[in-house]
Design a protein around this nucleic acid. Structure first.
Lengths: 110, 110
DNA sequence: AATATTAATCGTATATTTGCGATGAACTTA
DNA sequence: TAAGTTCATCGCAAATATACGATTAATATT
């Protein structure tokens, strides 16, 4: 097998952390998460009212957050109620904590 | 002014958090940061030896981490020594903590 | 001075992301 | 049943990200 970037096997933690980070890497998605975190839950309608973007764009961001596992939607016809996916949220929290948890006492070289 | 996505003024925190998250959103960059965090510092050479990718690609990832402020390079001719940018690292840590710090006691709706 | 090492940058190809308007499916309400 | 609401998806355009090899500038070594 050729030794190129295509064939790297990252640790599952690194891959998962990268996926979560990617989901958090857009200000609109951070705004949505903050909103959900404050409101417990909300409907897409609410977000469309708050965010100055097309409904389709917001729907796309919601899809990404859902696919990353950070939120979940429950059907409440004809609306969909979104909320934080608690389990994965805590998982993400743990992974980000792990990134930053290191001791800096030894880092005095720069 | 037209009310489109182009004209949104995100809070500085959201924008900064998104920039940090973007820097963390690739497994190679997470690997580099982990390496730096363990080793205190390292040279590009070291990373090229460890990561199975072209030197130019690694250099590009280093540039992104540097532009996000998470690492810094000091010239040590003919090499460049990279290490974590402690100040911004702690800033990033604080911002990510802030994302996840919420109380979940009220989130029982889903 | 000539050669080697280091690491950034350029040029290029391909993939992904972001945004919008338009459409459509599912469900409600009149 | 007809009209309205909700929200996902499609199709498209533009921007950004990712990777590579080749080149270049700076410095070190012979």
């Amino acid at each position: 097998m050729e030794r190129t970037a295509q064939n790297i096997d990252y640790t599952e933690d690194a891959a998962q952390t990268a996926r979560f980070a990617k989901a958090l890497s857009h200000p609109v998605r951070l705004t949505i998460l903050k909103y959900l975190n404050n409101q417990s839950c909300c409907f897409t309608t609410d977000l469309v009212g708050v965010l100055p973007m097309a409904q389709s764009t917001i729907s796309q961001h919601l899809k990404e957050l859902k696919e990353a596992g950070l939120i979940q939607g429950t059907i409440d016809p004809p609306k969909i109620k979104y909320c934080i996916n608690k389990e994965n949220w805590l998982k993400a929290q743990a992974l980000f904590e792990r990134i930053f948890k290191k001791d800096f006492s030894k880092i005095d070289c720069c």
